[in-house]
Design a protein around this nucleic acid. Structure first.
Length: 541
RNA sequence: GCGCCCGUAGCUCAGUGGACAGAGCAACGGCCUUCUAAGCCGUCGGCCGGAGGUUCGAAUCCUCCCGGGCGUACCA
């Protein structure tokens, strides 16, 4: 990688000055006149060196190897601007072509078992666009880590126990009675959505009038039936988006195996709990949490937090080295309590991290829709996916920084469906595919002489390709998949501009082959980027 | 009240200490006998919410204020 090798070269030059080490950066230059890469080493080192940045820069430059750069300049306040020899850039492309499948990020994961848990929506209704953002975020994050060499598993946690499921059963039963023409009403906190009507109708067809009253037996039946049907709905919604899970974890299992009780005992042993007002509390605050929270209610039922702690102990026991939970920003008190609990239990600090995101609001006709599953006010993920397609939904969901609110403008998404960033990127891939279809010859890009690549547009293209591994690494480590979405868009921009100004087929043979080799690498990076984003790479459009 | 996140072009957003702050959309004007015009090129557009501070240097870090979202349950 160019950046890394320049960093090394500069660091060696710095060493020769016998000064204490400093941390500096090497970045692609913002303007052509600043060369290919710029470093601030003289700016950050001026203090240690006790001289002005420009003087220091001059001293560094003297000890740079002669053959590395075509030109080195001191600019502005003391930047060192480096102009690379084309051979160096060609060598970089050569490296990518030689390294066929492996051209990619450093394998810092080295087989480490990492789990990404996401969506984990209650099985009480179909997924909304809000869940959609999380689904795509979690899925892309998983792919990013996988490409860093982690052994990644995607997990969905079903809260198929507790109060919300009771409410679902009551709501569903009410719809079932309504299907019989009876006057039953959905509980105030219940689920009003139309999707229950259909399910109730099916139940009526199956069992007729078997449950005239909502007693224990009816409750159990409607819970089971509702949860089962809705789980399938959710799986379908996710499959349609191209999101696949390795494991569907059921809360019920935790209770059945006694893991909740065991988790409570473990916390008690470490003196992480106390009793107050008949309830058992977690000592979260003195362990870095925001506030103490109830683990066991005064009526003896465990809270969501209690079960969640048991769930995370279970994850640890399964041999996972790291766990990333993707969650909405409304959970941050809960998150701090979870971390506090793990601290009490003596788990490694970096075992669990949260990738937090803000919500999606749907804007339609200039109006913002506030969504609520219970009130039946929402846009269904499946409706969005059916209308716009998997690629468009995925790109829009992941193109924004997770911590900002995502305004999904439906009108715009529809209207733009023709000159959409999605098609813009895919079209770049398609154009390359088209050139290869038309090219008469098949050449092995690894043995092509790259020296004819002299245009600044193509040297820039190579430099952009070179930064791909770093983008992937940063996108993963910062939980920032939008960096990759943006990278792909920028690469497409650079390619389209190049394509407009330079021909490939019909050029003199040496030049043509060199350009075909370049396009091989460009296409490979598009493919890899879109693969990680979970988008298709059409050969024709 | 307190805690977390956000405030950058008309709109949607990049930019987590560096050189004159970027892109898409919208608006306006050019470019198809040549590898797919789902494209390219150009013009217009900004006191980076406000005020202080830190330093060689701030959209970026700190403090305060203003505006928005979320949380502040023995809900999940």
């Amino acid at each position: 990688m160019l950046t890394k090798s320049i960093e090394t070269t500069l660091a060696e030059a710095w060493e020769k000055l016998k000064l204490s080490p400093v941390s500096f950066s090497v970045d692609p230059s913002e303007r052509p006149e600043y060369g290919d890469f710029s470093s601030n080493i003289a700016l950050v080192g001026a203090k240690v060196a006790g001289s002005s940045p420009r003087d220091l820069a001059a001293r560094i430059i003297v000890s740079l190897p002669q053959d590395a750069f075509s030109r080195v300049e001191i600019a502005g306040p003391g930047f060192i601007n480096l102009h690379l020899k084309p051979e160096m850039i060609h060598a970089c492309l050569k490296g990518m072509l030689d390294d066929e499948g492996g051209f990619g990020p450093r394998q810092i994961g080295a087989g480490t078992k990492l789990q990404v848990e996401f969506v984990s929506s209650n099985p009480t209704g179909p997924l909304t666009v809000g869940h959609g953002r999380q689904a795509v975020l979690g899925d892309v994050l998983s792919s990013l880590y996988a490409s860093l060499g982690y052994d990644v598993s995607r997990e969905y946690y079903f809260n198929d126990e507790g109060h919300q499921v009771d409410l679902l059963a009551q709501s569903l039963w009410a719809r079932y009675r309504q299907a019989h023409g009876a006057d039953a009403s959905i509980p105030e906190q219940g689920y009003q959505g139309d999707y229950l009507i259909e399910i109730a109708q099916q139940i009526k067809d199956d069992v007729g009038d078997a449950y005239p009253t909502f007693d224990e037996v009816a409750s159990a039946f409607f819970r089971k039936r509702g949860v089962t049907v809705i789980k399938e709905m959710i799986k379908d919604d996710l499959a349609q988006l191209g999101v696949r899970f390795d494991n569907w974890f059921s809360e019920e299992d935790l209770h059945r195996r006694g893991e909740v009780d065991a988790a409570l005992e473990a916390l008690k042993e470490r003196e992480g709990t106390y009793e107050r007002d008949g309830a058992i509390w977690l000592r979260a605050e003195e362990n870095g949490g925001i506030k103490d929270s109830v683990l066991i209610r005064s009526d003896g039922r465990p809270t969501y937090l209690m079960v969640d702690i048991a769930y995370h102990i279970d994850k640890f026991r399964r041999g996972l080295a790291r766990v990333i939970d993707v969650q909405g920003s409304d959970h941050h008190v809960e998150q701090s309590c979870m971390q506090a609990a793990l601290k009490i239990l003596g788990y490694p600090q970096d075992f669990l991290s949260y990738a937090v995101h803000q919500f999606v609001s749907i804007v339609e006709g200039g109006k913002t829709l506030r969504m609520s599953t219970r009130a039946g006010r929402f846009v269904l993920l499946r409706d969005l996916t059916s209308e716009l397609g998997r690629d468009v939904v995925r790109y829009f969901m992941v193109a924004r920084k997770p911590e900002t609110h995502l305004q999904f403008d439906l009108d715009l998404a529809r209207a733009e469906s023709l000159d959409n960033p999605v098609y813009y990127i895919q079209y770049a891939h398609t154009r390359i595919a088209s050139i290869f279809r038309k090219a008469q010859q098949v050449v092995d890009p690894r043995v092509v002489d790259l020296s004819p690549l002299a245009a600044s547009a193509e040297l820039d293209l190579i430099k952009q390709l070179d930064s791909f591994p770093q983008v992937v690494e940063e996108a993963a480590l910062r939980f920032a998949p939008h960096l990759l979405a943006e990278y792909a868009l920028n690469l497409a921009r650079a390619f389209h501009a190049y394509y407009a100004d330079h021909r490939v087929l019909g050029e003199e043979s040496g030049l043509m082959q060199a350009r075909l080799a370049l396009l091989t690498a460009v296409q490979r990076v598009f493919k890899r980027s879109l693969e990680i984003l979970g988008m298709s790479t059409p050969e024709m459009m």
